[in-house]
Amino acid sequence: MSTSLLFLDTLTGPLQYAFFQKGLVIATISGALLGFVGVYITLRGMSYIGHGLSHAIFGGFAAASLVSASFIYIGAGIWGISSALAINWVTRKHRIGADAAIGVITTASFALGVALLSYYGSSGPSFDNALFGSIYGISPDQIVMLIGVSVATAAFVFFRYRSLLFTTFDPEVAAASGVNVARTEAMLMLLLSLSILATLTVIGVTLVAAMLVIPAVVARMITDSFGRMLVLSTGIGASCGLVGMYLSYFAGVPSGTMIVLTGATVFCLALAWQGWRSLARTAGLDDHHEDAPEAVASPTRST
């Protein structure tokens, strides 16, 4: 058998299994979705929120699984969205330091999730699968949910492209130009939490944040154009999901692990291709996006 035929056979072999077909589809879409959303998250210096939110959702995941297996995603979704809006509110209002608040809220939620799963067990995915991702036991509902979230996210970005770009680049000037920054940011947080929730099963709680960051950072190293970065990051995320899923199958390790390791490999390749200077382009991606504190007391603005 020639090398090319052997390679083709290797690729098509796992596709005879329905679980792998579903896993491959969901991993590829998950990678694309996280790569897409990740552009906005990293450029806003909000990687830490993505990391915290995935841990917060794990708490909701565990608590909801105690109620009912069919309630897991609705419960975790409510928990995640509440956490996202709370984080957004804290970040904007500066009642306490944003890092401290997020650290407390999300890690406490994660710890609660660990405690609940350890004590009561789960009626849904196992502890390890929730943490590191798994291609087994993916239900049609999860695929529908992932596709729904992906379509909603793409539609939001498509129809609000310039407002989103403006608020990401310069929220204060965007607000002065008539963009409803608070609503735009709340929508982004909502879509972020739904994206994390929808991709949790395959990527895993502890590794979702990496897939929010790696494709976007690699894309940033390659291009100086926002539009191209969005396309590249989505493509890199999808490729990592696809390749990582195959590697997961052949290596017999959790899917999230191999997807993230594939992303890390792509990062190294991009670094070798673009050189160390390309890293300079990513400077500032870890700066926390925080508006200047708002003045207090009630306004009196009339027209």
């Binding site: 310039r162 770009l165 382009r281």
Partner: peptide, 25 residues
């Protein structure tokens, strides 16, 4: 106060101001 590492070209930056009506990419 500007983040000069933000990935936008001059054209993309100026076009941001067009936030009324159609906002397609």
């Amino acid at each position: 106060t500007v983040n000069w590492n933000f990935p936008v070209t001059v054209f993309e930056c100026v076009l941001m101001a067009r936030t009324e009506g159609r906002q397609w990419p």
